[in-house]
Design a protein around this nucleic acid. Structure first.
Lengths: 332, 332
DNA sequence: AAATTTTGTTTAATCGTTTAAATAATTATA
DNA sequence: TATAATTATTTAAACGATTAAACAAAATTT
């Protein structure tokens, strides 16, 4: 059961480790005597040889490893992303290192350092707020990377993201179509472009329909979501008693919104309609159907991984800036 | 911005790389001239040196990496475990490799191979059904490992698990205390000891209270949970129209059970009470409170990681077999 | 002043692999 | 039959770190 190395095979076959390496990597095939080659291959198989990762990686300076940095693995959105990335990446015979930032910039930096020290071949980043310096630094090195979900506007950085303006724009359009006229928007008080895009989408759709947004936007800072969402909703209902729709800009906000609705027996959707950004398994256990915007996660992850892999392989100078639209899934 | 190696520092300080290594690792401190040492340290700091992971790992044969193999990262239970492990492990300056088996034994084996090839220092395993051969193999090698959540009875393997008999036993006790007399049990049709323990706990509690369990257990195989759970509940209600409680043995089963309850407007808890194994954020958006058994995840992960780390460090021959009790959280 | 000890640093091997260059053995060409 | 060309394999350096052993210089003891 001892681990088998090149030199074990070499000894057994009475050849040098170099030759074994050439054979097992199918190099120099036109030079090596076919019988020698097959003899070596047979021995390798019999001894169940697998190349030592560290030796190989040190020599090749490739680790076949992708680093994935996200907000919080325990959040279903992150977990979903992680799982899809895991699948895509393993199809390329690579593996994923995952790290959670808890939205803290210092953790983000720390993880980038840890991962690059470990020589990951590429990085998939869902950056924290105010991490642009770090992104810029990464961009200037030549480690392949791509931002996902979150990004920075008007910058040359690589990204693959959801169309966040479209997200809330279509959600609001649907609410209006459903006859809603006083639409509250509950979002995060966080300095991330993709979140402010969601506000912009909401505002644009309302403006187009001549719907006032005065005092209809509530931003919660996310330290105590349960309480904050409750307060936000109550403030909203106080300043606008006839609010007839609530649009939540993330999955967690929606969760707490629904909890509130249950706790306070809101009449959903008769009096007030609830609409969500992000799919969640549990919408179905809310008594009435929830319409939600489904992010194109599969496609985003696919594009991101494909881009990284091609970059890692060819070391080209290509960049990527993709904004992908998802779909509004109507609660039935 | 180029990466800095020992030799860069050595060149700058006009000494050998060996000396630099000794200084930066604080070895041979009684031999090295203090001025030389501080000169080297200063240069290392100025050049922002961090040791190359691969070089170090190859030499030391330690990767400071733990492999975590679980069922499905996208499942909240798994994600929760992964996140806690990530935290615990990073406190030891290690990182985690995560892999999902999708309950397939071949994937489990593949991941074990991948991870051991990558020289992880230890393994935390939530094994698949029928993986005992593989576990036995791992047990006989001397790679530190520990089973979590799932395990094999009467075997010398290391494990840290929830008390699954207690889990359903206390849940049923509570249901009986609540006046329930016809208690259905919905569980997975999967050959995993911890799941059959949950059945045993259910049976024992019922027997003790002289409650019949005839036709009250439904096992679903998990390929199409949504449909299967629906069928299971309907069969149960058909063969026992006055069933007054449903106990679900996993979080996903509960989710689909709650969906069913909503869809078919079950009177919960007036007519039928629902009880769950595993905590879930979304119980609060079900119209009435859900009582659930909360597994001692923190404690389990803590014990598992601590055991692994001490094993890795000291290479002792200790083993661990811990069965930990969680708590029943009463829905209020 | 020679021998010994202590102090400070370097050399060289090692971890397991890859690969350019060297060498050896065989066959073809002159 | 010597020489060149081809075929088959080995040597040795490299990746970046660690560390036992060797060495050199200075200080101490005889």
């Amino acid at each position: 059961m001892k681990k088998v190395y090149l030199k074990d095979i070499a000894k057994e076959a009475n050849v040098s480790t170099a030759l074994v390496s050439y054979v097992l990597n199918d190099r120099l095939t036109d030079r090596i005597k076919p019988e020698t080659a097959s003899r070596i291959k047979k021995i390798a198989e019999r001894l169940n040889y697998t190349p030592d990762f560290l030796g190989k990686a040190l020599k090749s300076q490739k680790t076949k490893t992708i680093g994935l940095i996200l907000a919080d693995l325990a959040n279903p959105f992150s977990a979903q992303v992680a799982r899809i990335i895991e699948n895509k990446v393993s199809a390329y015979d690579n593996i994923v290192l995952i790290g959670s930032t808890d939205e803290k910039n210092e953790n983000f930096k720390g993880l980038v350092t840890t991962f690059t020290n470990r020589q990951v071949d590429g990085l998939i980043l869902l950056p924290t707020a105010h991490s642009e310096n770090e992104i810029q630094r990464i961009h200037k090195t030549n480690i392949p990377y791509v931002l996902m979900d979150r990004y920075f506007p008007n910058k040359p950085y690589n990204f693959v993201v959801n169309d966040n303006h479209y997200t809330t724009y279509t959600a609001v359009k649907q609410l209006i179509k459903n006859g809603r006229k006083k639409i509250g928007f509950i979002t995060l008080d966080i300095d991330l472009f993709h979140i402010s895009e969601r506000t912009r989408g909401y505002l644009d759709a309302c403006k187009e329909a001549n719907i006032s947004t005065q005092k209809m936007i509530k931003k919660v800072n996310g330290n105590q979501l349960s309480i904050e969402v409750e307060q936000a909703i109550e403030e909203l209902m106080y300043s606008c008693p006839d609010v007839d729709a609530l649009l939540f800009s993330t999955n967690l906000l929606t969760l707490y919104g629904l909890k509130y609705a249950i706790k306070h027996k809101l009449q959903v959707p008769e009096v007030i309609e609830i609409m969500a950004v992000d799919k969640a398994e549990y919408y179905d256990i809310f008594p009435t159907p929830i319409t939600y915007y489904k992010q194109p996660l599969e496609e985003m992850c696919n594009k991101a991984v494909q881009f990284l892999m091609s970059k890692i392989e060819s070391n080209n100078s290509e960049s990527i800036q993709e904004v992908i639209k998802g779909t509004l899934v109507i609660g039935k």
